[in-house]
């Protein structure tokens, strides 16, 4: 059962992290927009109002921080998580074959 638990735990952790950085991230940008943008509209104006500007607080390589996080984490971040999970499963597979 110890190896079974390793498989389940590794999968749950990798899934959670990958789901956050590869899927939920944009919804966090909306909900916590004050972290990423300077001029935050009141809730009733959040939908779209070009008269209300949202200016990124921080930029990385010229990109707004949230955009940079989205494009790099959904690519390199998830690739890294996948590679880590594969290494764990390679190890587990060796144990299973012994």
């Amino acid at each position: 059962m110890k190896d079974y638990k390793l498989e389940v735990r590794a999968t749950v952790i990798c899934f959670t992290v990958a789901a956050i950085i590869g899927g939920f991230l944009s919804s966090f940008f909306v909900i916590f927009n004050s972290v990423f943008f300077n001029q935050v509209a009141p809730p009733e104006h959040l939908a779209q109002h070009f008269s209300t500007m949202y200016i990124a607080k921080t930029t990385v390589l010229g990109f707004p921080l949230h955009y940079f996080l989205l494009i790099t984490l959904s690519w390199l971040g998830t690739t890294l998580i996948g590679a880590i999970w594969c290494l764990i499963m390679d190890r587990l597979e060796k144990i299973q074959q012994q």
Partner: peptide, 9 residues
């Protein structure tokens, strides 16, 4: 972005 990460799913 979701499509890219979906391969990890």
């Amino acid at each position: 972005a979701a499509f890219t990460s979906a391969f990890i799913g």
